[in-house]
Design a protein around this nucleic acid. Structure first.
Lengths: 351, 351
DNA sequence: TTTGGCAGCCACACTGTCAGAGTGCTAATA
DNA sequence: TATTAGCACTCTGACAGTGTGGCTGCCAAA
C-alpha cells in the first residue's frame, strides 16, 4: 500500500494525532488537533480527514463518541514516512557516554549498565543481548585440567572474547594426551566460526585417534561448548517503567509480560532472529508473541570485533519513536566503540 | 512473650483462622470458625476468644464489622508453636526428584530447574542462589594465556567447583613468568577460603618478586577474582504466581516487587546474610525491605562439598507455611544430594 | 472545499440505596 | 463462672439511576 501519497493534510493530522497521543495516552479528538497544533483549519475539517484516515485503517475509535487513537498500521506509517529524527541533547549524550566509558569494567558490567541507562533515559524497558559467539571465529582453544576428572575447555574467538566450559571426563586423562587433543582441535577447527564448528564438528573430527575418548566427549558436548551461555545473555532493566504505563493497568497483561521477561530465552531468541544491521522498529502485532502485541521494540545491533549483539528498548506501542530511535542508535554506536577499545575483562564462574 | 501458654482454645482458633484465611484470602469471621471446624463451641464463644487474640496482637480487623486476619505476629506464633509439618505426597517427591535428577546437567541448569519447580509446586516465587565460593577452600589456581595480552585465571575450590576470570595484562607476559607466578600463588594461597584470600591477599603476597607486575594486577583485581560472579547467582521463577495473588492487586506494590526482582543483588545479599543451617521462615516486616513487608520467605541452605547456597520461596505472608516448609526442606536435601554426586558441568563465558 | 452549528451518542463519575456479613454487648442459661 | 442466643449497630460492596463532558456525523451555508 502506498501510504507515501497521503495528502499533506492527512500526514500532518496523523503525525499530530500520534505525537499528542504519545503524551496524553487518551483518545484525541478533532478539536485538540485543530487547536493545539495551529494547523489553520477548523475542527470540522480535521474530522473529515480523520474519517479518511480511519477508512485507511490508520486510526480507530475505541468507541463511538471517543477521540481517535492510532492503529499499529498508523504507527507503522508514522515511523516509515513521517518520523523526524529527534537528536539527542548534548547532555543526554554525555550521560550515555559517561556511564559506558567508566574505566575498568568488563563487558558484563557494561551491558548491565547499558540496559539500565536505556531503561532510565527512555522510561521504557531497556534490553541488551550479549555478543553472539555463534558468528565468532575460533582463534584458539585450550584444554586445562582443573581437577582429577575435570577438564576446562577455553574457547577464544577473534575479537578476544572467550568462554569456558567444564567437562567431566570419566577416566583420568594424562597430560600429554590432553595436549595432543588440544593440538588436533586447534589444527582442525581454528578459523571456523563457532556456529560452523557446532554444525560440522562430527565430520571434521572423524577418524581422529581418540585415546581416552576425549574427542568423543567433546563432540557429545558440542551444544555446550560452541554456543552462547543461554542464560546470562539477556539483560532487562526498567520493567517498573513499563508497569506504570496506563496500558499495563490490566492484570492479565502484566502477568503475561512478567512471564515473558522471566524466561529471557523467548525474548532473546526473538531479538536475535531479527538481527540485521542497524535500527529496527517492530510495532505491536508485528511482534511474534501475544504478550507483547501492544508493545513495540526499537533495537539496534552493536559490533565487537567479529561478533555482534543487540540492544534496544521495549515499550507500549504508544512510545516516543523518534526519541527512542535516536537513543538506541546512539547507544549502540557508543557500545561498539567502547567494547572495541576496552579492557576486555569479565568475570564468570563455573563448576 | 510467652505465646506457648495460650489456652488450647486460643491456639485452635488461631490455627483454624489462619488455615482458613490462607485459602480464602478474606477476613474470616467467628461463624465460619465455629461452623467449618467442628470445634463444638458457638460463634459467640469464638468471638470472645478472637477479642483476646486481638488484644495479644495476633489478629486484627481491617475495619469494624469485618472478620479477622492474622498479623505478622500471629503468623509467627503459628509458625513457631502451632505448625504441623505437612509431609509431601510420594508423588510430589517424585516430581522433585525426577526433575532434578535428570542426567547430564550442570549446576546452572539444575538451579534453574529448581527455581522453576519450587515456583510451580508451591505457586509462589521460587528462588535459588548459587553456591557461595566465599567459603570454599582454594584447591588450585591456574593462569592460562588466552591471547597476547590476556590471561585467564581459573580458581578451583575443594568441592570441584571452579570459576574463571579474564585479566588484561598491560605488558606481554612470557610463559615462564606466568608459571612462576602461578606456582607462588598456589604455594601461598592453597587451602585458604576464597574469602580469606580476598581479605588478606595483600599481606600474603607482600615481598614477592613481581616481574611484569602480574602479582600486582592480581592483587588489584582481588574483588573480581575471589568473589562470586555477582549477577548470575540468583535465579527467580514464578513471579506470575505471585502477581495473581490478591495481595498484589495494588499497582504500587507490583512495581516495588518488580524492581526488587529485577535487581537480584538486593535480594541475594539479603538471603545470604540469613544463611545459616536449615530452614528459615521470615515473615512480613521481619524482612529487611519494604517491598516485601507483606511477603514471607521460606528458605533453606544446601551443601556442595565445602560450600553452600540457598534455595527457597517468596510469597505473601498469607502462605501455606506447613506445606512450603516441607517442600523447601525436601528440595534442599535433594539438591545437596544431586550436586554432590553429579557430573559437575557448567557453561560459562567470558570476554 | 471548508466551516459553523446542531443533534445524538457514549463513557465515566457520582450518588443513594440495599443486602450481607460480622461484631460487641447483654441477659439468660448450664 | 463459662457459654450461648439474641439484638442493635456498623461497614463494605454491588447496583441502578443520573448528569456531564467530550466527540462524532451530518447538513446547510459560505
Amino acid at each position: 500500500m502506498a501510504f507515501e501519497n497521503l495528502t499533506d493534510r492527512e500526514k500532518q493530522v496523523l503525525a499530530n494525532l500520534i505525537s499528542y497521543y504519545i503524551q496524553s495516552a487518551d483518545p484525541v479528538g478533532s478539536r485538540v488537533i485543530a487547536n493545539k497544533f495551529a494547523m489553520g483549519i477548523s475542527s470540522a475539517t480535521v474530522r473529515n480527514t480523520l474519517q479518511d484516515l480511519e477508512e485507511l485503517g490508520l486510526v480507530e475509535q475505541p468507541h463511538t463518541s471517543a477521540g481517535r487513537i492510532p492503529t499499529d498500521l498508523g504507527y507503522r506509517v508514522y515511523v516509515d514516512y513521517l518520523l523526524k529524527p529527534e537528536d539527542l541533547t548534548e547532555e543526554e549524550k554525555q550521560v550515555i557516554r559517561n556511564t559506558l566509558l567508566r574505566e575498568g569494567r568488563g563487558i558484563d558490567e557494561i551491558l548491565g549498565q547499558t540496559s539500565h541507562i536505556l531503561g532510565d533515559i527512555t522510561n521504557q524497558l531497556g534490553v541488551t543481548i550479549a555478543p553472539q559467539f555463534d558468528r565468532g571465529q575460533l582463534t584458539s582453544l585450550r584444554l586445562i585440567p582443573v581437577a582429577e576428572d575435570r577438564v576446562m575447555v577455553i574457547v577464544v574467538v577473534q575479537s578476544g572474547l572467550a568462554k569456558s566450559v567444564i567437562l567431566e571426563v570419566k577416566t583420568q586423562v594424562d597430560h600429554r594426551a590432553l595436549q595432543e587433543v588440544e593440538a588436533v582441535l586447534n589444527e582442525r577447527l581454528a578459523g571456523l566460526t563457532l556456529g560452523e564448528i557446532r554444525r560440522t564438528i562430527d565430520e571434521r573430527l572423524a577418524g581422529v585417534r581418540d585415546e581416552g575418548r576425549l574427542i568423543n566427549l567433546i563432540i557429545d558436548s558440542k551444544d555446550k561448548i560452541w554456543t552462547d551461555a543461554s542464560k546470562s545473555e539477556i539483560r532487562l532493566a526498567g520493567a517498573d517503567h513499563l508497569l506504570s504505563q496506563p496500558e499495563f493497568s490490566d492484570r492479565e497483561r502484566i502477568s503475561g509480560l512478567v512471564r515473558l521477561l522471566e524466561d529471557g530465552r523467548i525474548l532473546s531468541d526473538f531479538l536475535r532472529q531479527a538481527e540485521k544491521e542497524g535500527l529496527i522498529i517492530s510495532i505491536g502485532r508485528e511482534n511474534k508473541f501475544s504478550e507483547i502485541f501492544d508493545c513495540s521494540l526499537v533495537t539496534s545491533s552493536y559490533q565487537v570485533g567479529d561478533i555482534s549483539g543487540t540492544i534496544g528498548v521495549i515499550g507500549p506501542t504508544r512510545m516516543a519513536y523518534s526519541k527512542l530511535a535516536s537513543v538506541v542508535e546512539y547507544t549502540a554506536r557508543t557500545i561498539s566503540d567502547v567494547l572495541s577499545g576496552i579492557d576486555h575483562e569479565k568475570e564468570d564462574e563455573s563448576s
